[in-house]
Amino acid sequence: MSETLNLLLLATWQTVYMVAVSVLIAAVFGVPLGVLLMVTGRGQILQNDLLNKVLGTVVNVLRSVPFIILLIVLIPFTRWLVGKAIGTTAAIVPLSAAAIPFMGRLTETALREVDRGVIEAAQAMGASPLQIITRVLIPEALPSIAAGITITTINLVGYSAMAGVIGGGGLGDLAVRYGYQRFMLDIMLYTVAILVVMVQLIQVAGDLCVRRLSKNR
């Protein structure tokens, strides 16, 4: 029993670690990417057709590669970046690579929902594009961006199940290696139960954040 428990604890920790770091990286790079996608769009404050097209294409390509393929394709890049191609830390690289463009699109959508009139009002007051981004767009879209981070986190929990392919470990890997390949049904059930609880917790926490942020609006 204690061996099972140890397995589960380790795998849970690995999943939490991979997802947490990846979502952090996704937010740090994905939100600015989303801002760029939005402001360079047609009719927006920093319209730039070329940049918008290039960014949009890169995002679409990254998002259309199946994650399992991305894991493998990125191996040389991962080795160059973190010095190794297998293990839990190495898995963070492909996870982030998948989550950044996703977060970018969600952020872009969130920013697009900001009332045009409010942007226009800021322009009429003589605000610069940077001031509009930092003082109007992001604060106004913050609840939606928080909701986007929640969705990205839950997506990453799902992706992390495939991290076993490059030895990343985690709950999904445990379920496959023990639950499926060794017919240990109990481990399979435990891992699924933990994943369900984990996703529930993320959703509840995310909703709470969104509600906090949109208080009084």
Binding site: D115, G117, V118, E120, A121, A124, M125, P139, L142, R217
Partner: peptide
């Protein structure tokens, strides 16, 4: 523009 104020039909206030 700082010397030209503007008000709008739908107010356009920052909800945040």
């Amino acid at each position: 523009r700082k010397k030209i104020g503007m008000i709008f039909q739908h107010f356009n206030l920052l909800s945040s």
